[in-house]
Simulated assay, not measured.
Amino acid sequence: MTAARPVDAASILLLDRSDESVRVLVGRRSSKHVFMPNVYVFPGGRRDATDRLVSVANPLHPAACERLALRSGTRCSDSRLRALGVAALRELYEEAGISVGPPLDAAASDALPFRPDLSRLRFLARAITPAGMIRRFDTRFFALFADEAGIDPAGATASHELEDLRWMDIFDPGGIEMPDITVLILEELQKSLQEDKSLPFGRTAPLYHTRRGRFLRDLL
């Protein structure tokens, strides 16, 4: 049997810092999912082929693009990097009903009812599913402050893909069951915010992957 190759995916850590604590949006994956059912994760999913074609309101920050491109292979292009940002915001809309970007006219034929604004997305981390899993993803994790994007945290709405949406204190998950990689990414967020609450766009980002059976954390 041919080993599954990882496909591009994107996930977003939407952050609410309106109170003393910082909260992140998570939801429970449906029991119908083949990959990681019934656990709490950040909104996200695979990059669609059409994500490259979506017109954006503003591009990714140059420093975020530079980090994203590292160790992404010779086929990495500006359109592929932009598509990863689009995928993160598209999934946020599809799974939690949150739009990031100016609305489009109702008569527009675009795939999304808004033009994604990628300019405030911070590249936080990257993780590649180990070989042997039923599905493999090369996931880029982005962080976004809700207030910077003009998002009302109360507007998050559960979907058939992501149920029981919760705003979780990043330093107090409260016993919520999460996959190991989600826990690791949450820990990366904790460390990053403790180092600099603004989450600078050009900061180094960890890459979690396996090589010859060893689980590794490299820096990009």
Rank of each mutant, 00 (worst) to 15 (best):
S99I: 09
D196G: 06
L144N: 04
G155W: 03
S77D: 11
A154F: 02
T157M: 00
G174L: 05
D138K: 00
P206A: 10
E148M: 04
T204M: 14
M168G: 04
V100E: 00
D218Q: 13
A10H: 07
A154M: 06
L84I: 04
T157C: 02
I170K: 07
Y208K: 06
S99K: 09
G175Y: 06
L124N: 03
I151D: 02
S72E: 12
L104T: 06
S30L: 09
R214L: 12
F137E: 15
G202I: 03
L189G: 06
N38G: 05
R29M: 08
G97A: 01
P153E: 02
D16S: 03
S72T: 08
R46G: 11
Q194L: 15
G202W: 10
F123G: 08
T139M: 07
D172V: 13
R17E: 15
V39Y: 10
K32H: 11
F137N: 08
P179W: 06
A4G: 07
A64T: 15
A57F: 01
N58Q: 14
R212W: 13
A10G: 09
R5G: 10
F215A: 15
A154P: 00
R28E: 03
V54A: 00
L199Q: 07
G101C: 02
P116W: 05
H61Q: 10
V24N: 05
D196N: 13
D51V: 03
A9C: 10
R211A: 12
V183R: 15
L162Y: 03
R23E: 09
L118H: 00
M178F: 04
D16Q: 03
F42Y: 10
G44A: 03
Y40K: 03
F171G: 07
L15N: 08
D180T: 14
P206M: 08
Y208F: 15
A131K: 02
A205H: 01
D196V: 09
V7W: 02
P179R: 06
L207V: 09
V24K: 05
L92D: 00
D48Q: 14
W167H: 07
D117V: 06
V41N: 06
R23W: 05
R115H: 09
P200W: 02
A88T: 08
R82G: 05
R122D: 10
E161M: 13
A49T: 14
A83Y: 04
V34S: 10
V24G: 12
F201I: 05
L189R: 10
S109C: 11
G73Y: 04
P103I: 09
V183K: 14
L13G: 08
L13F: 13
L70A: 12
M133Y: 13
L89F: 05
A107G: 08
S11H: 09
S99Y: 02
K32V: 12
T74I: 15
G97S: 03
W167F: 10
E188A: 09
A69H: 03
N38W: 06
F141N: 01
V56S: 03
R47G: 01
S31A: 15
G202R: 04
R23G: 06
F215H: 14
D48G: 10
G132Y: 02
R140F: 11
